[in-house]
């Protein structure tokens, strides 16, 4: 259904499908990030899967709802924080007198445990956090320019501020 101001009402099938798939997208993406060192996957792949949840939210409920549900400022800061964390975990090798990105604290737990691989695990988590915040922020930024009804949403925000 299309209204006069250009905002399209999404069909109920898309809404129900997105409602069903959203938890799975988020949970499975986080699983891929967390188990990056013991099973196929890793930070980049899982991060993009979690960021796809923002696209699902946009497809079902439009740009206005997606923008109000997700705090883009947190995403913008979180990406820089993830990149900084990666460098800090990489520098851990320097503090024990070895080279950058040297794997340290890896001798706790058996092979196959969740946290058995030392800094590889934590670097994977920081890359995952960085990718999910960064790609989510990029998706929302581009949808804000391209989506129909995005300007109306911005106007509404300005009215609220006044």
């Amino acid at each position: 259904m299309k209204f006069k101001n250009g905002i399209t009402e999404k069909s109920i099938i898309v809404k129900c499908g997105a409602d069903m798939m959203l938890p799975f997208a988020v949970v499975f993406g986080i699983y891929i990030i967390l188990f990056g060192t013991v099973s196929p996957g890793g930070g980049f792949q899982g991060g993009v899967m979690v960021a796809a949840a923002a696209v699902l939210l946009y497809l079902a409920y439009g740009y206005k709802t997606a923008k109000s549900a997700i705090n883009t400022e947190v995403l913008r800061v979180g990406e820089a924080a993830g990149a900084t964390l990666y460098v800090i975990f990489g520098l851990c090798g320097l503090f024990i007198g070895s080279v950058f990105c040297q794997n340290v604290f890896y001798d706790n737990g058996a092979v196959g445990d969740l946290i058995s691989a030392g800094t590889i695990t934590y670097m994977g988590y920081s890359v995952g956090f960085k990718v999910l915040t960064g790609v989510g922020f990029l998706v929302l930024l581009m949808l804000g320019l391209l989506a129909p009804g995005a300007d109306d949403a911005d106007d509404d925000e300005e009215e609220d501020e006044e």
Binding site: G36, T37, V38, S39, P40, G41, G42, A83, Y86, V87, G90, F100, C101, Q102, N103, Y106, D107, G109, V111, G112, S116, A117, G118, T119, I120, T121, M123, G124, V127, K130, V131
Partner: peptide, 25 residues
């Protein structure tokens, strides 16, 4: 050296960790 069961993760974050740094930047 790494105790990572996933060999690819060990390569990406340890053996070529500097490359991954550039990739994420």
């Amino acid at each position: 050296d790494t105790m990572a069961a996933n060999n690819v993760a060990a390569v990406v974050f340890d053996f070529r960790g500097f490359d991954t740094l550039g990739e994420s930047f």
